[in-house]
């Protein structure tokens, strides 16, 4: 493909990204740097503010009996309840990523089983990359930017909840130094989705061909958008290795949670994705 085709692909993926992902990096950075005027996020920094902030968080997936469980210490129930709302937001995010994947030229022409495999293996990596713009060293935006939850608070939760977010903060703080913008992100996410080395793929060749075109488009995009950032393309590709380790650890933590938390039920969509993953 020539440069004009590669630029058209970059524009197309950026438009799809804006269409399917409601909280962009531009918006998130404006909120985090206090440039949104009166529209400041509600800060959750302890159990009391978590309780106060719950009304902001989408709680529709939580069964009533879960909320009224008497046998549990109140803060234990609160942690589980919060974990459930995270799950419902994640399931919604999987739907958004699926729509984005379908907008990648050629994706829906791939074998349907391969489309499923690419999503199964790619979606958590994509979600972790998409967390980075929402994070700074002190905390993260959640609930579409309505809430800022502090890193210290997440670290203070009981184990293993306390271990879930810290690796994502460490990754994100480093990732954010690359200073990608939303149009770069759109291409990078497509590259991640189109990974030809996912286990169980039936027809690798067309996937690799699609990825190669998106990689060319990403390389050109970074040259034009970040002319002074040396080796940015190479640095970005290296992040994909770190990402796989984070996802493996994340899935193991969830599997541990499933064993240790009697009252935890995993969202059916997330269950599907994580079953036999790593």
């Amino acid at each position: 493909p020539d440069a004009a085709d590669l630029r058209a692909l970059a524009r197309h993926l950026y438009e799809a990204y804006l269409k399917y992902f409601p909280l962009t990096k531009v918006k998130a950075r404006a909120i985090l740097s206090g440039k949104t005027g009166d529209n400041v996020p509600f800060v959750i920094h302890d159990m009391k503010s978590l309780m106060e902030g719950e009304q902001f968080i989408n709680c529709k997936q939580i069964p009533i009996q879960e909320q009224q469980r008497q046998s549990m210490a109140p803060s234990d129930a609160l942690e589980l309840r919060f974990f459930h709302s995270c799950q419902s937001r994640s399931a919604e995010a999987v739907r958004e990523v699926t729509e984005f994947a379908k907008s990648i030229p050629g994706f829906i022409d791939l074998d349907l089983n391969d489309q499923v495999t690419l999503l199964k293996y790619g979606v958590i990596e994509v979600l972790i990359i998409m967390m980075a713009p929402l994070m700074n060293k002190d905390g993260t935006l959640i609930s579409y930017g309505q809430i800022f939850m502090t890193r210290e608070f997440l670290k203070s939760l009981r184990k293993p909840f306390s271990q879930m977010m810290e690796p994502k903060f460490e990754f994100s703080v480093k990732f954010n130094t690359l200073e990608l913008d939303d149009s770069d992100m759109a291409l990078f996410l497509a590259v991640i989705i189109l990974s030809g080395d996912r286990p169980g793929l039936l027809n690798v060749k067309p996937i690799e061909q699609l990825q190669e075109t998106v990689l060319h488009s990403l390389e050109l995009q970074l040259k034009l958008n970040h002319p002074d950032s040396l080796q940015l393309f190479a640095k970005l590709l290296q992040k994909m290795t770190d990402l796989r380790q984070i996802v493996t650890d994340h899935v193991h933590l969830i599997q541990l949670l499933k064993k240790t938390e009697v009252d935890m039920c995993l969202h059916p969509l997330l269950q599907e994705i994580m079953k036999d993953l790593y």
Binding site: E92, V94, T98, L112, N113, V116, L119, L269, E272, I273
Partner: peptide, 20 residues
């Protein structure tokens, strides 16, 4: 296919009315 029912549904429905 049964193992990934919801993912299949999400991929095949352009309007994604799947109840999450």
């Amino acid at each position: 296919k049964e193992k990934h029912k919801i993912l299949h549904q999400l991929l095949q429905n352009s309007t994604s009315p799947v109840d999450l």
